[in-house]
Structure formats: C-alpha cells, structure tokens
Simulated assay, not measured.
Amino acid sequence: MLLTWLAVALPSTLGVLETPQLPIIVTLHGLFLIAIVTIINDVPNTNPRLNHVFIAITIGLIVSLMMISNSYLYLIYSVMMTSIFAFHTPALFCIGYIIFIHSTYLLIQFLIWQAGWDIVNAATFIAFHSFALMLTQKMLSEKKAKEALALSNTQLETAHTLLANAAAHDERLKLARELHDDVGHTLTSLIINLDIARRTQDEQQINRCYEQAKVALNTTRNVVSQKRSTDYLDLASTLKNLAEKTPRITVFTKIPAQFTCTNLNVAHCILRCCQEAITNTLKYAKATHFTIELTTHPEQLNLHLYDNGQKQTQFTLGNGLIGMHERVEALGGTCNINSMTTGFNITIRVPYGSNKSTFSR
C-alpha cells in the first residue's frame, strides 16, 4: 500500500514543483494516506459508519487530485481503493464506484483539461479495477471458506467428544446394572446360603467364606457407585478447546476452577449453545472478541455469552437461536437474547441442583 502511494505521490508532486498548486497537492496526498491507513487498520470493520466516512473522503480526494493536476496516475490510487473497499462494502458498491470514478475521469479530462475523451486510459484502468475487484472477492471467498472449514472441524471435534462421552456413559450404565443385578444377586445368595451352612458345618471355614462374600459384595457396590458418580463430560476442557480453535475472533473463557458437570444433558446443552452463539458472531456481528462465562450457584448454572460486535437494533430468531431456546427450555431453564451497545448478549440459566449423580442399591 505504501509503495503504491509513493509510486503515485512522488511523480505527481515532482511534476508540479514550480506551480502554486504544490502545497495543495502535497496536502491532498497526505490526507489520502491518512484516510487509507485508517480504513486498513479496521479490517474487521468494527466501526462501519466511520469507515464509510473515510471511504467517501478518499473518493473526494481522488476526484480533487484529478481536477487540480492533469494525470491519469490518480487512477492507480483508485485501483488500490477498489481492493480496500471490497473488505468494507458490498461488491455492487465497488462496481458502482468503478463506473463513477471512470466517468468522472473522462468528464474532467474533457471539460476541465480540454484533453478530449481519454478512452484508452479509461478502458485500461477499468480492466485493472475489475481485475483487482475479482481478485479481492476471490480472496475473501477463500477466507470465508477456510473459516467455515475451521469452524466445522471444531464442531466435529466437540461432537466427537459428546459421542465418546455418551458411549462411555451408556457403557458405564450397562456395567453398573450388570454388576448390581447379576454379581450382586449371586453374592447375596451366597451370603444367605453360607449363613445357613455355618450353623450346621465347620464354622471357622464357613465364616471365612462368609466374610469373603461380604467383601466381594461391598466391592461390587463401590465399583457401581464409582462408575455412576464419575460419569461426566469434561465441559471446561471442551469449551476451552472450542475457544482455541475458533477462527478469526479471539474467544475468552471464564469458567470456575474445578468445575465439573455430571449431568450430560446440561453439558450437551451448554456446549451446543456456545457453538451456535460463536457461529452467529462469526456470521453477523463483525466482532473481534467473544466471551464464554460460566457461573454456578447451588441450584442453578448461568451461562453468559457476549461479543464486542456491532449493536443490532433489530434481529429475528433463526433456526439456530430458536433451537437454543428449545434446548434450554427442555431442561427447565431460561434463555434471554438481546443486543447491547457493544454487541450481542445471551444469558442462559439452567437448573444445576440435579448435577450430582449417585447410585444406591
């Protein structure tokens, strides 16, 4: 960008060293540089209104330079600006700008500089503008495709984690039932039989068997209880992994230390809501930061999701946000969605008192 500016500013300035227009031209070049640097430094387009003001300023500066100095070099500025505009405005605006700037150039050449209709230079630079716009659009589409792929990969990883935990959950439940129903029943019968036998046979030997059977039964019960009580999804690690692998924006996680969620339905709901909120931020918010904040209370789990994107005064609930409401309400919770001054804000509350799982005979 700086090299392009120098390639236009230096020749055009050197050509008017002995003219009274020199201070004006130097000032216009300086203002143009400041404007494009300001626009480029806000590539995420976090402040679109201000960017639109600077875009209008740069267009005005290019036209002013064309009117003060007779040179087609200023169309090089315009080619550079077409690529920059593509990051902040729709493609239709860029096409309209190309038509406007070349029409203006032809009129200035014909009316002000009496140079006739400079069709050759205009046609040449229309081709350059079109090429720059197509190249930038292709780059933007590839960038969006890479972001979508990265987000899909992250969602697939979290889905795999959920499936793995669900499979482990089912396996643990099956093992717990089998231990309790089969082994536990057998050992209980053995204790009863030994209790009867010890009254009529060698008490020392039978007592030893009796005690061993009681130990085996207690061990079985402990294994069953442990399998049930440790059945949980490592939600904190899964959310942190989701945050680290989210493309383009920085995702912060605020999760209490030693946090665990043994209720798989609640964990699944929280994870899906975070995924949907991040997806919406990437698509619509034009944000640079997103925060996942979890707080726990004795009977309630609070999830706060927010970004620093644009304020949305009006929005409609799409399938994703409707699905988020349905997931939360199915657990007896609430989901509030609104747009703050600094971005999108989602607050979710779900019952947390049933988070601990126990098993008893």
Score class of each variant (00 low, 15 high):
120 V>T: 06
122 A>M: 01
123 A>G: 01
123 A>E: 01
123 A>S: 03
124 T>F: 10
124 T>W: 10
126 I>S: 04
126 I>F: 07
126 I>R: 01
127 A>V: 08
128 F>L: 06
129 H>F: 00
129 H>V: 04
130 S>K: 06
131 F>K: 11
132 A>N: 12
132 A>V: 12
133 L>M: 15
134 M>G: 11
134 M>D: 10
135 L>A: 15
135 L>P: 08
136 T>S: 15
136 T>E: 14
136 T>D: 10
137 Q>H: 14
139 M>P: 05
140 L>P: 04
141 S>Y: 00
142 E>W: 12
142 E>H: 12
143 K>L: 08
143 K>V: 07
144 K>T: 12
144 K>H: 13
145 A>Q: 15
146 K>A: 10
147 E>M: 13
148 A>N: 01
148 A>Y: 04
149 L>C: 14
150 A>D: 06
151 L>M: 11
152 S>R: 15
154 T>L: 09
154 T>Q: 10
155 Q>L: 07
156 L>R: 14
157 E>Y: 07
159 A>R: 03
159 A>F: 02
159 A>L: 05
159 A>D: 05
159 A>V: 02
160 H>Q: 00
160 H>I: 05
161 T>Q: 04
161 T>S: 06
161 T>P: 03
162 L>G: 04
162 L>Q: 02
164 A>C: 02
164 A>T: 07
166 A>I: 10
166 A>F: 11
166 A>Y: 11
167 A>F: 12
167 A>P: 06
168 A>L: 08
169 H>R: 12
169 H>W: 11
170 D>A: 15
172 R>G: 04
173 L>F: 13
173 L>R: 12
173 L>P: 02
174 K>Y: 02
174 K>M: 05
175 L>N: 08
176 A>W: 00
177 R>P: 03
177 R>W: 04
178 E>N: 09
179 L>H: 05
179 L>T: 03
180 H>F: 05
180 H>K: 02
182 D>R: 07
183 V>I: 15
183 V>Y: 13
184 G>T: 03
185 H>R: 13
188 T>L: 12
188 T>H: 11
189 S>C: 10
189 S>E: 11
190 L>V: 09
191 I>C: 05
191 I>K: 07
192 I>P: 02
193 N>F: 09
194 L>E: 07
194 L>H: 08
195 D>T: 06
195 D>G: 07
196 I>K: 15
196 I>Y: 15
196 I>G: 13
